[in-house]
Design a protein around this nucleic acid. Structure first.
Lengths: 358, 358
DNA sequence: TTGTAGGCGTTATCAG
DNA sequence: CTGATAACGCCTACAA
């Protein structure tokens, strides 16, 4: 029904292949015929059929996105819309479209990926999360299908192109910051241990404590989902140990918000009684009471770099494996204060918001 | 390179067309050959090529999503991830994939849509927003391409399938609620007047006031973007009129949050000095101080119903135009109180959180 | 510089 | 019940 290359050819009085070449802007076509063909295209309102082109080329100009299993997390945690926006911008610049796949279980996700890949629907894949022992990664790697990971690979770090923050170092830094404030009972609230980002942050936390000669305590480390509810549950547990921490490293702002709310209900004051540092610097981090001291991880850039490097890889299959580390920076707000043995109200640290990300 | 229908045919010793029929589970193929063919498929790890199928069928099993122009809004407002989740679930059930398009300007978006449609990339389109005088809608409508709108069409309401809340009625209700609390100086903070949802809510607000015999005041109505910053700016303007409102209808929770923050900085108390009702019931609405009285519009359902009805339309082209109205319900929390002429602290309304949406 | 012909992987029509 | 064969719309040698 739609107008095809043949219709244009007929009108312009050339062969279909000529039209095809005009579309590709093949230099071996004379300007004159190009003009004539283009006029015909305009006149007929011709638009190339991507599907046919894809079939002929074996290329789709589409990137596949694999969203995390937890639809809850996806729809609640502002990380995802922001990373999507970055991905979208990077893809758009190179005229790639974005296709998403989700699933309620690991199997569904795996199936979705296989469909995308074997079905020839996409030229490459971005994984929006990094988990330990991921079938999807194994599959993609074995087939040698172009993909990039947002986060750090659990295995084969040197063989998988990925875009990540230096979460280990960032967590060492924030933990040291708390130590520097005089805290020595510092807890850690992380996401699922299946997620590599949790592991990295936990390691950074442990490293900092060990380097300061502080003994690690199992009961100070809790794992929940990256949601506000997760934060609530974590802090409930944590406050039951009989020597609760005076400072917390929380692996996600949304969790930190849950912690804040729960602490407030308990009548425990932040930062006077407990100091908190978290991660991501989502918009809410600035609005909470108190505003959170948190690590800005430049979520947009994670997405943007991911689609850029995936497209490079697609366009040049022998592009070497890359590891792109996106900057982070701690934004100091009002959720941390100097440790005070008497646990009295003490002066909140002065705000020093670092320069906002561009 | 990949294994095709022909390879399977060869191995199973049948014609390619037979394999195709087995894939389609055509009843006219004997169970015996079906088994044989399926074995061959397993053995070779065959997966059908969607692109080829699409070309042959003129159908892609992909829905196109058109995101709003403002990438800011998309990445900040929790409305979008939630509606995406609904769309995704509805599509997934029917084995449709989702493809997104965005753009920084109306033109870019329009181009994206044309590419999707004329390029044959998608079978139907969901518009995630509804604006006044939308070229995209005109284009889709004229071509008679299957699409549904999330929101109310500005024109041709009877001719465009759409999924919406009854925003007019909802706003009448909340405005009446404020009136019932004794307020008569009620302001309205809405989004861009380009967005139909703003128009609808504004009309509801005006209707309620008029029905109560209250004169409308231009200076009580402000329009900003659906973001927290928008709320901040709006309330700044509003508090400068020399008889500021004692209650506000705010068309979006995120804006309401901005209003809350700004009011707090101004030392104006909610709900003691000003009452606020807003819309959407995003997670944050429950966490703010005070928790917001807001209208739950069941965002997930908007998305879910949209993809369902679009797929119906695709599968049955003469499906009649439909208008699907998703329920709303006001969730009373702590941002409203009885009007008190002396503007003294008065008792906050008791919380009556309605049953959470399933 | 341009035209011809075959192929990309499926589906659908028509015989048999 | 199954096999040829011709599309689907475009691209790309190979010819001319």
């Amino acid at each position: 029904m739609a107008v095809t290359i043949k219709d244009v050819a007929k009108l312009a009085d050339v062969a279909p292949s000529t039209v095809s070449r005009v579309i590709a802007n093949n230099p071996r076509i004379s300007e004159k015929t190009k003009r004539r063909v283009r006029e015909a295209m305009d006149q007929l309102g011709y638009h190339p059929n991507f599907i046919a082109r894809s079939l002929a080329n074996q290329t789709t100009q589409v990137l596949g996105l694999v969203l995390p299993e937890s639809t809850e997390t996806f729809s609640q945690n502002p990380f995802f819309p922001m990373v999507l926006r970055g991905l979208s911008e990077g893809a758009h610049e190179k005229h790639f479209a974005l296709q998403m796949t989700t699933g309620q279980s690991e199997d569904e996700i795996y199936e979705g990926v296989v469909q995308m890949v074997q079905g020839g629907r996409v030229d490459g894949i971005v994984l929006l999360y990094s988990k330990v022992e991921d079938r999807v990664i194994m599959y993609l790697k074995e087939r040698n299908f172009p993909f990039v990971l947002i986060g750090k690979p659990f295995k084969y770090t040197e063989e998988i192109t990925h875009v990540d923050n230096d979460n280990f170092r960032a967590t060492v830094e924030v933990t040291n910051y708390l130590l520097g404030l005089g805290h020595d009972r510092i807890g850690f609230i992380g996401g699922d241990l299946d997620l590599v980002v949790t592991v990295e942050r936990l390691l950074g936390y442990e490293k900092a404590l060990r380097d300061s000669g502080i003994e690690l305590r199992n009961e100070y480390v809790i794992h929940e989902e990256f949601l506000r509810e997760g934060g609530r549950e974590a802090i409930n547990e944590l406050m039951q140990v009989n020597d609760p921490p005076t400072a917390l490293v929380v692996a996600d702002d949304l969790m930190a918000l849950g912690v804040l709310n729960t602490l407030d209900e308990m009548g425990i004051s932040v930062p006077d009684d407990i100091s908190i540092v978290s991660f991501n610097n989502i918009m809410l981090a600035e609005m909470s009471r108190p505003p959170l001291t948190t690590v800005d991880i430049n979520i947009f850039d994670l997405g943007y770099e991911a689609s850029k490097s995936l497209i490079q890889k697609i366009e040049n299959p022998k592009e070497p494996v890359k590891r792109i580390i996106v900057n982070h920076n701690m934004v100091k707000r009002f959720s941390c204060s100097q440790y005070n043995a008497s646990n009295k109200k003490i002066k909140t640290m002065a705000q020093e918001t670092l320069s906002p990300k561009k």
